[in-house]
Design a protein around this nucleic acid. Structure first.
Length: 420
RNA sequence: GUGGACGUAGCUCAAUUGGUAGAGCCCCGGCUUGUGAUGCCGGUGGUCGCGGGUUCGAAUCCCGUCGUCCACCCCA
């Protein structure tokens, strides 16, 4: 344990080489897939006014009431590290005056901050890949955005994932459902856990996904939102389902998916895994038709989702560890003798210009240099001594086979490509 | 925020009933000063997370603290 009093903040981890390689694979898959669906990347602020999240997510939520890194800056402004991306994206959409510019299809990749108790797959600073689509209201868009999420994860080849969908209804049908739910729950308060009894007052729908098995046994025939949808919501939901079927996206209806926030309506979905312990949600989202107007804009339909970059990286690491460490270094240059040092550096530079990833082993003791080459995982060693320099050639060694040959400088690239 | 487990060399771990720490791997050097991954020999490296306390004596017991992990909670 090196630096004792100089550690990263609890729950805030360094992304070292291994993790970053994993993340970059996830990011590459996202950029590729989202591009196919004509989504464009945006880069949004990490610092936002605290007020933004109070007004969007809501003061009563855990995220805002106890998990936000919020502070007053030197000028007296109340600002915070963003705990999620949707609110900022909506703010930016409004600020840029895009409400009459047609459908906006955005995605972003970046860090979010929540002061939670750290756990596997749960960090205080974590990265999300977020997608937001503004100005699209039909079930076709819902189906397509889910197909996009599915394609994105398929691109990564992660198995064991499950798409679950639900409908949360809308302002028209939710009150009646709420009454039905409360009636059902009130009859069983004695059998529900303490947390659930609290939730009766704050957010009764949350009781549906309580993990307490005792509570779950009480909920066998609990009223479900999907069975209380109004006509419009019903049509929307069946449009989504038939869209997913048409696109061959496997899904499952899970009436227990809920959202804590008021602005969510209709489609809600999660993609879950059983491989990350309690933090099984790898991607989640839904429709939030109410948010734009809640933040002062015109009524605007919107839908989006966010995926946890670290969680996806962990799944990749568990599934194919072999993939993680494919050699970065293609060629190691070994210089034998002081007199060829500078020349060997020039040859290394030339190989880099030719498009190879090259390390120079530093000259000196030949054995040491070969050891370095091996440790770096170089596939080839280009050996340069006085003879080679004089003759305008190098000795090319293929590390895996041990085969070594003399190749003239002009034939080197061809020889390497032959050996690959 | 609540509950539980853990914290010993760079890494993975060991140290019988409390007697001031060991191994493997890694790293460095040598056996071969134009050749690696296998072999042999040698070497560097630890205020036992940190701070108190009990004791003649603590890595080992107690308290606190920080951190990691797990579950609750919450969520990506």
């Amino acid at each position: 344990m090196a630096a004792k009093n100089l550690q990263s903040i609890r729950g805030i981890h360094d992304g070292l080489v291994t993790e970053v390689r994993l993340w970059q694979r996830v990011e590459a898959a996202a950029r590729k897939t989202f591009g196919r669906y004509a989504f464009s990347e945006v880069r949004l602020p990490i610092l936002e006014p605290s007020e933004l999240f109070v007004r969007s997510i809501g003061e009563a939520t855990d995220i805002v009431s106890k998990e936000m890194y919020a502070f007053t800056d030197q000028g007296g402004d109340h600002i915070c590290l963003r705990p999620e991306g949707t609110a900022g994206a909506t703010r930016a959409y409004l600020q840029a005056g895009l409400t009459r510019s047609g459908t906006q299809r955005w995605f972003y990749i970046g860090p979010m901050f929540r002061r939670e108790r750290p756990q596997k797959g749960r960090l205080r600073q974590f990265q999300q890949i977020g997608v937001e689509m503004f100005g699209a209201q039909g079930p076709l868009e819902d189906a397509e955005i889910l197909a996009m999420a599915h394609a994105f994860l398929s691109e990564l080849n992660i198995s064991g994932l499950q798409l679950e969908i639900n409908s949360l209804g809308c302002a028209a049908c939710r009150p009646a459902y709420h009454d039905a739910l409360m009636g059902y729950l009130h009859a069983r308060t004695d059998h529900l856990c303490a947390t659930c009894n609290d939730r009766m007052n704050t957010n009764p729908m949350r009781i549906l996904d309580c993990k307490n098995t005792q509570c779950q046994t009480q909920l066998d025939d609990v009223p479900e939102m999907v069975k209380h949808l109004c006509n419009d919501c019903e049509q929307h939901f069946s449009g989504l389902k038939s869209g997913l079927q048409a696109l061959d996206v496997p899904y499952q209806i899970n009436a227990r998916i809920v959202r804590g926030l008021d602005y969510y309506n209709r489609t809600a979905f999660e993609i879950v895994t059983d491989q990350l312990g309690a933090q099984g949600t790898v991607l989640a989202g839904g429709r939030y038709d109410g948010l734009v107007s809640q933040l002062g804009g015109p009524p605007t339909a919107a839908i989006g989702f966010a995926a946890g970059l670290e969680r996806l990286g962990m799944l990749l690491a568990e599934q194919d560890a072999s993939h993680a460490d494919t050699g970065l270094v293609e060629i190691a240059v070994v210089a034998i003798g002081e007199s060829v040092l500078q020349y060997s550096m020039q040859r290394a530079a030339q190989l880099r210009n030719d498009g190879f990833n090259v390390v120079h082993c530093g000259g000196g003791n030949a054995k040491r240099q070969f050891k370095t080459a091996d440790r770096e995982g170089a596939r080839f060693v280009v050996i340069i001594g006085e003879d080679e320099m004089r003759q305008g050639c190098v000795s090319l060694k293929t590390m895996a086979t041990g085969k070594q040959q003399q190749v003239s400088n002009k034939d080197l690239n061809a020889a390497i490509n032959l050996e690959q």
